[in-house]
Amino acid sequence: MSRELSTGDPAPALRLTAHDGSIVDLADATHSGTVVYFYPKAFTPGCTTEACDFRDNLAALKGQGYDVYGVSGDDPQELQRFVTEYHLPYTLLSDAS
């Protein structure tokens, strides 16, 4: 059963494969906050705009103690291509289930 999350709610347990092939468990996040955004598919116009907005504002987010993770249904290889093409300096996670 899924439920809608509100700002400030703890994220559900997520253990996913990152774009670089590593396994990320968000329960291990060490910063004071974590931003997890979900998007349908890499390289689509809206998703690319969103990813680049996080890229362009990452320094401010990091300065406030936040880590950023993007989650989509794309496989890790596609996510790596997306990271490389758009110079995304944060972790993208694959939820291909």
Rank of each mutant, 00 (worst) to 15 (best):
A60W: 07
E4A: 14
A11H: 09
T48C: 12
D25I: 10
R81C: 01
E85W: 06
L26N: 12
G63P: 03
H31K: 15
Q77S: 09
A51N: 06
G70W: 01
L61V: 12
P76Q: 08
V24D: 01
S32E: 15
D75A: 02
C47Y: 01
P76M: 01
R81L: 12
P10F: 05
A42V: 04
Y66R: 00
H31M: 13
P76T: 07
R55M: 05
G8V: 01
T30F: 02
V35P: 02
L93P: 11
T91F: 06
C47W: 02
S22T: 15
F54M: 02
L5K: 11
Q64A: 15
Q80P: 01
D20T: 07
V68W: 00
L14Q: 03
S72T: 04
T30N: 09
L88H: 08
T7G: 09
C52N: 07
R81I: 08
L5V: 11
V71Q: 02
K62N: 14
M1F: 14
T17L: 05
V83C: 04
P76L: 09
V68H: 02
L92H: 08
Y90K: 09
L26I: 15
T30G: 11
Y66Q: 03
L79M: 00
P40Y: 04
T91L: 08
Y39K: 03
K41Y: 04
V35N: 05
T48W: 04
T49Q: 12
D28K: 15
D75L: 00
